[in-house]
Design a protein around this nucleic acid. Structure first.
Lengths: 359, 359
DNA sequence: AGCAATATTGACAGCGCTATCACGCAGTTG
DNA sequence: CAACTGCGTGATAGCGCTGTCAATATTGCT
């Protein structure tokens, strides 16, 4: 036979219904859609629920209704501040809504991502937000099987699973390099850490821009698979100086590296931007406050999270999402670290600043 | 009568059982405890499940078993890097375990915290990790009603709900001030932003230390309710200079502020540490890389998350947790920004450095 | 071989909630 | 006055899984 009897202290919908003198289904309706219950019963149910300290059982609700109000969110890293901004947007958007967020961390691994997607599936999520466009075929299949709205964030791509919001890392980086070229820089280094797909694309943008200007030189590129950090910025920069002593600018694939480069320049008494210009990526808050202030590429991370979440909600709730692929763009914020006053007057003069070692 | 018939494509335990030629309960066991099923059936079930693409239904499992494998985690902020380190520890600890994390953000509001705890209750979490010790009475009651292991993190207190892991913010700050006093600093400022309970306690530690040294002066304290940022560090420091022009050191309630102070000093050509010593709090990665390197109070945030998570798991799984209140301590990491060479030889000399405005 | 101890397996009855359909009752409508 | 509409309500039958306990197969031991 079955299991042991119901625990006496347990408060279920039924208990509330009994106390309020209505049927359980009415109480159920009250909790999901108070308007559909008449005012009199509404009050009785409300007070009964409060008296008994009733708490709805989400598992039972999910099982009976065959759906949940869980949004799965997959990001590659918790440490990377970039994602905390995106997350803040996501959490803000769902704030006060009935949805709750299930966050998981892929650690930049597509296999891990696959595993986590499989886990999400068991929850029958109402929506999914995933990072990037580089899911495995298997991963895409799993997402598709979830049969719910999906938004890919952080990047743009030609083949969205469902919806997509991001910007072009290639173009953003090219724009930063163009800015440096316009300032008269010629020996522009590239520093990258972690080298996840997005950083790879920034590197691609760098290469495109440098090749187009006929200034490409592989010795100008220093990268590492190690995660980014300020200290790493300093080390990579030191390596770069060894490989390319005639450097006149550094593009850093993110702002932590840029800060590390700035510190290393201070340490070596290299004048910024006079001897070396610095440009970062993401425009973290501290960039505007450094001495000199640091140029960076602003990316709309908070807005990305916010809008991704809104797109998911709209889709779930049947509101038509017309713009299913959103390019949020970027902006090169020019600050002291890359602004060479002479550039404004003389304009870029090829070779002008590439005059060998300057320290 | 009931509802419409079962959708044909749906794969349940029953379908897998039928294909494998065993009873549903055996399949259930296979998924939860493969060892309890004989090898032969194990293989048959495994291949049947794979063939059908079976995905367990967590809601049904939770309902039937009356428990979940969800750990609720409540933190005040996603933006504050301090918490991302803690979170990393938590996520790492649960990595590969059967538990999943439900993260929510209280935004430094105890009412919000209460609301979120109530939401967590509906999920019947297997464990709870909450930040700080300042829950409302109502909040504590809700947590208690959850009837699961609870760990309070980030702080220590005399009245733990269940388990607790953290360190004394009062002592940590006092230690930092003592260090500055030992360096001969006398006019030590305090900069704080956000002023959440933990920052308040650091302020308390500052006051204790300064009063004990008979050096307390309210003009040395500048705080704001606004969230912390590097830029804010610069502004607060500027305010402080106006109120106390004879300043010889600044303790910053966190490292972002300290970085802002450093930049502001560079901007004003104030020598660090000769004219003004700087000490931060948390020992973020960039502190060691700044020029000069910045002194800070190291707090073991990653370990805190890791161990909090481990404590919850141990408790859930019936392993006895003997140390239910863990003091993780702290360490003042002395770096260039607060190391006055003369202090080592001459020792602290009262009034020596408090010789009025120096810039 | 005989029997107890152990390892596997299965039948049954829910877990607490909601989808579905049915129904009563006011207010309309022709 | 019958037929119709629509709201508010309720009865019923599961949603897909697992706890419980009984039944059966296997093993070890005398």
């Amino acid at each position: 036979m079955g299991r042991k009897r119901i625990k006496p202290g347990k408060v279920r919908l039924t208990e509330v219904a009994a106390l309020a003198g209505v049927s359980p289904i009415t109480v159920s309706r009250f909790f999901r859609n108070p308007d559909t219950v008449s005012a009199g019963r509404r009050l009785r149910i409300e007070s009964a629920a409060k008296d008994l300290g009733y708490v709805p059982n989400l598992a039972a609700r999910a099982l009976a209704s065959q759906r949940t109000e869980v949004i799965g969110v997959l990001i590659p890293s918790l440490t990377n501040n970039v994602f905390s901004d995106v997350l803040r947007g996501i959490y803000d958007a769902f704030e006060g809504s009935r949805y709750s967020i299930q966050l998981a961390n892929t650690r930049y691994s597509v296999l891990q991502e696959e595993r986590l997607l499989r886990l999400f599936l068991m929850q029958k999520p109402a929506g999914l937000i995933v990072t990037g466009v580089d899911q495995t075929a298997e991963g895409r299949a799993i997402v598709q099987a979830a049969d719910c709205p999906v938004v890919q964030i952080m990047e743009l791509g030609t083949d969205p699973i469902d919806m997509m919001i991001g910007f072009s890392h290639v173009d953003a980086c090219s724009a930063a390099i163009s800015h440096l070229l316009a300032q008269g820089c010629r020996r522009i280094g590239f520093l990258g850490a972690r080298m996840d797909p997005r950083v790879q694309r920034r590197l691609q943008g760098y290469q495109n821009a440098m090749k187009e200007a006929s200034l490409f030189d592989p010795r100008l590129i220093v990268t590492t698979a190690v995660p980014t950090s300020t200290t790493m910025g300093g080390s990579l920069f030191s390596d770069l100086l060894l490989k390319a002593p005639d450097l006149d600018a550094v593009f850093c694939a993110n702002d932590d590296l840029a800060l590390g480069v700035l510190f290393e320049c201070q340490r070596r008494h290299i004048a910024v931007p006079e001897q070396i210009a610095i440009v970062g990526f993401n425009d973290m808050e501290f960039m505007a406050s450094a001495v000199p202030t640091l140029t960076s590429v602003r990316t709309n991370r908070y807005e990305m999270g916010l809008r991704a979440a809104t797109m998911v909600m709209d889709e779930i709730e049947g509101r038509e999402v017309t713009q299913r692929v959103v390019d949020l763009g970027f902006e090169v914020i020019e600050r002291q670290s890359s602004t060479l006053s002479r550039a404004a007057t003389a304009g870029p003069a090829p070779g002008e600043r590439a005059s060998g070692t300057k320290w």
